[in-house]
Design a protein around this nucleic acid. Structure first.
Lengths: 141, 141
DNA sequence: TAGCATTGCATAGCTCACTATGTAATAGTA
DNA sequence: TACTATTACATAGTGAGCTATGCAATGCTA
């Protein structure tokens, strides 16, 4: 129970549950976070454009967007030029939680790294990026 | 998209998909791995005993065990002394994949850490353990 | 321009995590 | 001993990821 894989998985699960608890009052769930971050930056994207900004599969995003629509965080409008596509727009609700959500996320990041020195935290992020890079080219020639 | 939380989550998802692909030929899936590891160590545990060895919730384990039974990796027998409990036993199939599974997991761990030096890899695991420890006491006084 | 290929998105079905709750069986106690 | 509490496990329902597949609209080309 000390392998890298086990630790990574365990850490991710614990983290997502912390995030879930902290953002629950805002009426959002962890899976909606990446899409919200992107939409706070730029509203009115199509699903395809949004997808290009996120590291998830198209089907996962489609389902997440459906839940976000149900939760009244976004609306989807028909694309003016392409009837297959729809543009995605934040509701007032979706827009209004931006600052609190950002703050919550930053706060959690700070807290969980608090036992590492600045250098250690920096190294930790660097290692993760390198490991992610490595995993990505393991299963792609 | 460079926060610790995002990186951890991304890394975990990538890793689990690598594991999934590599162990598919053995007829198992990533969620079954921790339970298998424990049962390879000691067969015939009750669900409660197994649960104590794993970092998942009871309901998650119950569902995982049901899938493992369906996949003919384990069988469940009535407990000799307590009719509420059942003991969990590996099938021949479940037992036979042990070495290949171990090897696959170790191989992946090695590969994904291959771009880190020995010291870096060691530090990386250490940081993860510390972060995990920190997260655990964030939401418990 | 008719037909085929591609594209954008949705849906189905799976895993695997969670919380909440139900159901027996066992244990403890008035 | 008859209740009540606790325990062991199962089930229901949700989120969030995945692959595979479907469907309609668009684009390309013979």
């Amino acid at each position: 129970m000390n392998s890298a894989g086990y630790l990574v998985n365990n850490m991710a699960r614990l983290l997502v549950e912390v995030l879930r608890k902290r953002i629950a009052p805002l009426g959002i769930v962890p899976g909606q976070f990446p899409a919200l971050l992107a939409l706070w930056e730029k509203d009115g994207l199509t699903q395809k454009e949004l997808l290009a900004l996120l590291d998830i599969e198209q089907a996962t995003l489609a389902n997440t967007l459906t839940r976000m629509e149900r939760d009244e965080l976004i609306t989807r409008k028909e694309h003016p030029a392409d009837a297959r596509a729809r543009t995605i727009h934040l509701t007032d609700q979706g827009r209004s939680i931006r600052d609190s959500a950002y703050q919550t996320a930053m706060q959690i990041n700070e807290e969980v790294l608090a036992d590492l020195s600045e250098q250690e935290a920096h190294a930790f992020l660097d290692y993760m990026r390198r490991v992610i890079g490595k995993i990505k080219d393991i299963e792609s020639p």
